[in-house]
Design a protein around this nucleic acid. Sequence first.
DNA 1: CGACTAGTTGAGGCCAGTCAATGTTGGTGG
DNA 2: CCACCAACATTGACTGGCCTCAACTAGTCG
Lengths: 256, 256
Amino acid sequence: MPPAYLPDPTTDRAANSHPVVSVRDLRTHCSTCTMRELCLPVGLGGGGMMQVDTLVGQRRRLRKGDALYRAGETFDALFAVRVGSLKTTVLAEDGREQVAGYHMLGDIIGMDGMANGEHGCASVALEDSEVCVLPFDRLEEIARDAPGLQRNLHQFLAREITRDHSVMLLLGSMRAEERLAVFLLNLSERYRKRGYSSTEFVLRMTREEIGSHLGLKLETVSRLFSRFDEEGLIEVHGRVIKLRDRIGLQQLLAAN
Amino acid sequence: MPPAYLPDPTTDRAANSHPVVSVRDLRTHCSTCTMRELCLPVGLGGGGMMQVDTLVGQRRRLRKGDALYRAGETFDALFAVRVGSLKTTVLAEDGREQVAGYHMLGDIIGMDGMANGEHGCASVALEDSEVCVLPFDRLEEIARDAPGLQRNLHQFLAREITRDHSVMLLLGSMRAEERLAVFLLNLSERYRKRGYSSTEFVLRMTREEIGSHLGLKLETVSRLFSRFDEEGLIEVHGRVIKLRDRIGLQQLLAAN
DNA sequence: CGACTAGTTGAGGCCAGTCAATGTTGGTGG
DNA sequence: CCACCAACATTGACTGGCCTCAACTAGTCG
């Protein structure tokens, strides 16, 4: 299994040279997608799977830095990450901005728009990426016929809530070193689930973005990376991180 | 309209003297509930409303301090707050605890259990309270027949996500005084929506619980209340808060 | 009345923020 | 291919906001 930082051939830019966002009318099929066991159709039988297949109308390709959607845009679809990774950022009225989430293969994003019909967050590709478009009206429609899909949709919404709760816990009660340790361990686990190395991966975010996500300043993040490196917990080579002592990282938390 | 801190006759303990949690088999009716325009049946026509009415199987009464559910308990229902208020607290593996939410009339709680079938939070009554029990299997079932209800359910889930995002923003990027100002303004607005005074209300949480919710220590919360009082922004009499200068509070945020 | 919980206030310390200088990397065009 | 530039990252010195520890007050309940 290749380390996560090797170039992924499916993101090869040559296949999609010019348009910032291209729409491919190729039929896509959940039933043959490698992410089907992590994504919306997880656990669905033949019937449900077929219906989900009719749902995915198109894909969108994004180049690094492209916005999948911006705060204020009208919401009409959820998106499943097929290739690459994205960040979502919350924007306050006063201009304050914060990275709310970091999303990778199989994640469902866009739920921030469901509450009032327009997106409360922006979502930006951290590398060349591709998402499946799931028109929401249609999704609700299908969910009414397919209890399994309905259940999955609820699960994904609920998981987002649970995930947010743990971020709140992190932001509200942890010290800087604990936050970074949690962040790294969490990433490691998510890469593992997706079949990538859990001990060596590339951070797709800058120090500033990581800091924003963790409620820290970029200098603090940088200093902590250096310190963790000195202490033998991890190895840092720019954005390439190697976990050397997972237990040690976990113990940072155990100590209250 | 009575200030929120006057005793509410519907919470009169005499009606329910002994059992810590009593189950009343009286039929309840959303269609006549005063909270119907804020709660799950919001906007539903006659048909949808009738179906929701069949959903609410029972109510549960809680005395101050009683747990509606605890972390780890199996999830099988959502709850609608009918009377009183509750807090939900997230619990980390290492014992860390944080107040994740403060819930009042018309709020739907319990969604923290949907992700994996057991509650990730605990929910505790902050005063004598009463909730409607919404068995989740049945709710999903009805939602399949009633698109309006399905939509509402999704909205409530999504609103929870949006709410969590703004808490994340608060915890991740605001200073102590800003956090408290946001907290007070938010409470004020929620009381207003429910027909209570938006300028005078009773905090149902201790300084410690407020601090936990805002990622602050109780001493900091106490000091800030005193300072806001000195500065003429609010008047503090124990847990009774009177907003004196809403604009002033809002300006605390505007200044970056 | 004493024990207990909740709240207030003060003094001092520390963690992370701020400001600033310098180093490193990656993409671009000559 | 290399030089250049801009974005990203590192590191140091200093500051300040919030936490910690502690003492004291007020209200409540047996």
